[in-house]
């Protein structure tokens, strides 16, 4: 069995079975054991520097939706509508 077919099988199984936790064990190029954890490797839709987002404007308790960060998150749902609008 080739690595490619195994990867396709794992990815397909995860999608069909709705698996959100688990790990794949393999060997890296140096021959060392390596584990790919599904939880520790979630799909990152966007990343920010903490210092850029930790400001009073983003953390407005009186109006959460006024935060530019929240507005960015809301826009990302539209940009990835094929994922976030797809029925379960």
């Amino acid at each position: 069995m080739t690595k490619r077919s195994l990867i396709e099988g794992i990815v397909k199984t995860i999608g069909l079975a709705g698996i959100s936790r688990g790990q794949v064990h393999g060997k890296n190029a140096a021959g060392w054991d390596e584990y790919v954890d599904l939880v520790e490797n979630p799909d990152v839709f966007e990343a920010f520097e903490f210092d850029d987002i930790a400001d009073e404007q983003n953390l407005n308790l009186a109006n959460i939706r006024s935060s530019t960060l929240v507005q960015r998150m809301r826009a990302l749902l539209d940009e990835h509508a094929h994922i976030f609008d797809a029925p379960q």
Partner: peptide, 9 residues
């Protein structure tokens, strides 16, 4: 990964 040994879930 260079090779895959197992998948745990």
């Amino acid at each position: 990964l260079n090779s895959i040994q197992s998948f745990d879930f």
